[in-house]
């Protein structure tokens, strides 16, 4: 693992830079500020780390392939650093200063290898909009030291020409698909195939991590639930035998009944009066 000089993650537009912190919630942020949910994904092979947020150790011995969070972080700027387990903060192998966490977002911060194999941190804003009933969202992120890839499901390409550190996503029918990752435009399998269970109403985020050169490419998954929608309705009867409404002609019958009573009563009264 090489030492990386301090990198600044620019927080442009919706792109957020990240951070994590257990006890940070009360730190110098106005109470009205919106919080964001922040997860951290470890995609650097063979390199467990300690994670520091604003100088405070937040994750101890965080292992490759693990996903931490989500943490609720108030909007603000955060300093993040990764060290080898137990090493001092000034020996950090990766640092991001003044990373911006916007309010009200859902963010994943991936520590991973760049296309040419250098450790870096990339913030991703997760799409947590609702999916339609019966659908699941699949998001694939290329965070591996590897060239452009295609992602296939059931042998058919679903995402093509994906490069580090980009993502591709789609809302598809929920269920299990056999997925693999191939070098772009080829049938050369780089990862998989793997059975991918896409649960309805969730976003399944799959990170390709590792290095093609070192032959340790693999997949790491993060799932965000609660994005489901209810079906449009429950149509469950066409017979009418259980109908509880009173049909029009029963009202008519009641009306005729009243009419007969009135007319009949009037006649009786008339006849009696006439006799008198």
């Amino acid at each position: 693992m090489q030492l990386v000089s301090i990198r600044r993650v620019a927080a442009g537009g919706a792109v957020a830079a990240l951070a994590l912190a257990g006890g940070l919630a009360t730190a110098a942020t106005p109470a009205y500020a919106a919080s964001s949910k922040v997860s951290v994904v470890h995609g650097i092979p063979d390199t467990p780390v300690d994670v520091y947020v604003n100088g405070k150790k937040t994750l101890d011995n965080f292992k490759p392939g693990d996903v931490a969070g989500p943490l609720s972080l108030p909007e603000g700027d955060y300093d993040i650093a990764l060290t080898k387990p137990g090493e001092a903060l000034d020996q950090a192998i990766l640092k991001v200063d003044d990373a911006k966490v916007p309010g009200g977002a859902n963010i994943s911060l991936a520590a991973h290898l760049s296309a040419d194999g250098k450790p870096q941190i990339t913030p991703f804003v997760n799409d947590v909009s609702k999916v339609g009933a019966g659908k699941a969202r699949l998001i694939v992120r290329h965070t591996a030291a590897a060239p452009a890839v295609d992602v296939r499901a059931g042998g058919q390409p679903v995402f093509q020409g994906l490069t580090n550190p980009k993502e591709a996503k789609a809302d598809i029918d929920a269920g299990t698909v056999k997925a693999d990752v191939v070098l772009a435009g080829t049938d050369t399998v780089a990862i998989g195939p793997a059975d991918l269970t896409l649960k309805e109403g969730t976003a399944t985020i799959v990170y390709a991590i590792g290095s093609a050169e070192d032959k340790n490419l693999k997949l790491v998954a993060q799932t965000i639930s609660g994005l489901h929608s209810a079906p449009g309705g429950v149509p469950s009867g066409t017979g009418g035998q259980a109908g509880t409404g009173v049909q029009t002609w029963w009202y008519l019958l009641a009306g005729v009944g009243v009419l007969l009573l009135v007319v009949g009563g009037a006649r009786v009264a008339t006849v009696r009066t006439g006799r008198r």
Partner: peptide, 8 residues
């Protein structure tokens, strides 16, 4: 901070 293995 909850940590999960990123298994599929």
């Amino acid at each position: 901070v909850p940590v999960n293995t990123g298994t599929l």
